[in-house]
């Protein structure tokens, strides 16, 4: 796969260089998550964090409770919705970026990612100020004589916050694919008599789909796992699974329930990802067949 010489990075030194980061990631991420899985299989207990032995009851209780099923459905739906909104809003921006000069592309990348590096809590705070009942938007509306609209703590504010936070990932992942599409292919299409629009629909867009799929996947997974946005912009009624993992473990000290919720979340993500990859694979094959464009 890779023809770089390995004069320096031989087997012995590879092991030496990887030992520390691997150990850190194992002890700080993987093992705690495995322990959490173990906790999810303990019986619940009123006197300590968990009882002794093994049980599937925590999972059964959650999966038979309409309250949690609703939250699970909402989590998946909000993930999908954010992915769709980000695609629709982000694609034209990525397309525009791909047609800009290299310098302008760099500057746009800077502007897109700059907000990502400020703490998410600051960005959510800004949206509270903008959307609040006495906030910026309502202030403007009142100035022109329109009554205040309630915008915070709704699906609207949650989607807005999630799109705001994850849009840049979508734009960049589509852009990264668009810039690799050779100009010759588009020119060939136009020389053959296709209009600009038709060239886009039949050549450029299908070729850029891998970027759309990658961006969608990223936004979908990230927004399903979002905690701060639903907690600050969604309020108590709009929580997603991660918010309930939090409240189970921290507020009600119910470790077993929180841990099983976390694993239901992880398993759900896996199932949705597998479904997603299957659909994408079928779809790409169908597209490759119908346009004759080979990836």
């Amino acid at each position: 796969m890779n023809s770089q010489s390995n004069l320096i990075i031989n087997r012995k030194r590879s092991i030496l260089l990887l030992v520390l980061p691997t150990a850190l990631a194992l002890f700080i991420v993987l093992i705690p998550i495995l322990y959490m899985f173990r906790v999810s299989l303990y019986p619940a207990s009123n006197v300590s964090a968990h009882g002794a032995g093994w049980t599937l009851n925590n999972y059964i209780n959650i999966l038979t409770d309409p309250f949690y099923l609703k939250i699970l459905g909402r989590t998946v739906l909000v993930g999908l919705g954010t992915g769709v909104f980000c695609t629709i809003i982000g694609y034209p921006v990525a397309l525009y970026m791909s047609r800009c000069s290299a310098r302008k592309q760099q500057i746009m990348t800077l502007l897109l990612v700059a907000p990502l590096y400020t703490s998410i809590i600051i960005r959510c705070y800004a949206w509270i100020v903008i959307l609040g009942n006495k906030g910026i938007i309502n202030g403007f509306l009142n100035l022109v004589g329109i009554n205040s609209i309630s915008m915070l703590y709704s699906y609207f504010s949650v989607y807005l916050g999630l799109v705001y936070v994850f849009l840049a990932y979508m734009i960049l992942s589509i852009f990264n694919v668009l810039v690799t599409i050779k100009k010759d292919v588009e020119e060939a299409s136009m020389i053959m008599g296709a209009s600009r629009m038709r060239t886009f629909i039949e050549v450029t867009f299908p070729l850029s789909l891998p970027g759309v799929f990658a961006g969608f996947l990223l936004d979908f997974v990230l927004s399903m796992g979002a905690y701060v946005v639903p907690a600050t912009l969604g309020g108590a009624k709009m929580g997603l699974i991660p918010n309930y993992v939090y409240s189970s473990v921290i507020n009600t000290f119910n470790w077993t329930q929180g841990s099983s919720l976390a694993f239901i979340y992880i398993i759900t993500t896996f199932i949705v990802l597998i479904l997603y990859f299957t659909i994408v694979k079928r779809f790409s094959r169908y597209l490759a067949g119908s346009t004759g464009v080979k990836k």
């Binding site: 705690p32 998550i33 959490m36 979002a226 993992v245 473990v249 921290i250 841990s259």
Partner: peptide
């Protein structure tokens, strides 16, 4: 890729 809340709580309970 793993939600921060899950990593945070996993570390905390461990």
């Amino acid at each position: 890729m793993v939600p921060a809340v899950i990593i945070g709580i996993a570390i905390m309970i461990s």
